[in-house]
Amino acid sequence: MNTEHSPLWEVFVRARRGLSHTHVGSLHAPDAELALRNARDLYTRRQEGVSIWVVPAGAITASSPDEKDAFFDPAADKVYRHPTFYEVPDGVAHL
């Protein structure tokens, strides 16, 4: 196998109708069609899925964990985004 001609693909499988696609692993394939077929043979031999996505690994841009604090910090001081932040007076229903 030549990695140049057979790039890496990330595989996402929807286990059942109603669930979201979940990353299950990766594989090598020359094109998207073969990547799908290989993914079927590799990751769904026991009916683990009803739908598969394959994505070229090179097309994924990842946030680095090294940046985690700085990158995700802005969300940390906005507790008012959660409903639990608000005090509800006694006796109020349907809120």
């Binding site: 196998m1 030549n2 001609h5 057979s6 394939a29 020359p30 094109d31 073969l34």
Partner: peptide, 13 residues
């Protein structure tokens, strides 16, 4: 097999 698959992918691209 690997070469044929790569050639086919290149042709389709």
């Amino acid at each position: 097999v690997r070469e044929a698959a790569a050639a086919y992918a290149a042709k389709r691209a």
